[in-house]
């Protein structure tokens, strides 16, 4: 594993908790996680590509093991901030002809990055993506604006449950057992604020008018039983992204990369040819 062909790559590795595995010079495959998760979610899929790909995993700033100090509320108030980070990562690692596999909002971040720098990408795989979650005239996203408010309420209402779950994680990840409860509390409060904003950005963004600008060969993967991104959301992506294909997987839930990693891996591989 080698990193840092560019100056500043080390800083990015810390900021986005980047890992890179696989043979040097092999085609690059980058996995981007979605809302509410981390690069860990790819643990069952990513290893399937390590033999013949340079596999890059990362956490969005504010998620997983990323550097929370890099979280700028203005920058990350839209998906463009995340897309800029993705492009920075690709450049810093010297990647080209990239296969980008994004889940959920991570898929949409990939679309924005590929629109901004089409030459960087070889192909896109959008897993459980949605151009817009809120229903609109003539458009089914699956949710109403009130539902997003309810999600934000749930985040707040479950703050305690969440903090008690996450506390051991913070402790476990920390080399500083002297961390006081107070410090922990401030960490979780900051994370709570990040989670709220990321939820807003994820569920209130609208990329419908951007999709026609995607010129990268694209595979849309939707699972049959996904309440977050229903099959119609996948059909909309297919119909809006020029030349894209839709693959509907008989799989359970929003996290097909966890619930059926073999099926997803096979689907990606057959698309890549």
């Amino acid at each position: 594993m080698t990193l840092a062909p560019f100056e500043g790559a080390d800083a990015l590795v810390r900021r986005n908790n980047i890992s890179s595995q696989g043979p040097e010079g092999a085609p690059a495959i980058v996995f981007g996680h979605g809302y509410g998760s981390s690069r860990q979610m790819w643990r069952l899929v990513a290893p399937q590509f390590v033999d013949d790909h340079r596999v890059v995993l990362f956490d969005h700033v504010g998620s997983g093991g990323s550097d929370r100090r890099a979280y700028d509320r203005g920058k990350y108030d839209s998906l463009h901030g995340y897309a800029d980070d993705l492009l920075e990562i690709c450049h810093a690692l010297g990647l080209s002809e990239i296969v980008y596999v994004g889940h959920s909002v991570g898929a949409m971040i990939g679309c924005l990055a590929a629109i901004a720098e089409p030459t960087l990408f070889d192909s896109l795989v959008l897993v459980g993506g949605s151009a817009r979650y809120i229903n609109d005239e003539g458009y089914v996203g699956g949710f109403e604006a009130d539902d997003v408010d309810a999600l934000l309420d749930s985040l707040d209402a479950n703050y305690l449950a969440w903090a008690s779950t996450m506390a051991p994680v913070f402790m476990g990840n920390s080399d500083r057992p002297e961390l006081t409860a107070e410090l922990l509390d401030s960490f979780s409060k900051a994370d709570q604020a990040v989670a709220r904003q990321f939820a807003r950005v994820t569920f209130l963004s609208d990329l419908r008018s951007d999709l026609s600008s995607v010129s990268t060969p694209t595979l849309v993967v939707q699972s049959t039983n996904d309440i977050v991104a229903p099959v119609v959301a996948g059909e909309f992506l297919r119909d809006s992204i020029p030349g894209s294909r839709l693959e509907v997987l008989e799989a359970e839930g929003h996290y097909v990369h966890v619930s059926d990693p073999e099926k997803l891996t096979t689907t990606i591989r057959s698309f890549l040819g």
Partner: peptide, 9 residues
């Protein structure tokens, strides 16, 4: 629906 979003994500 709001709880569904929280449940899944």
């Amino acid at each position: 629906p709001g709880s569904r979003l929280y449940f899944e994500t």
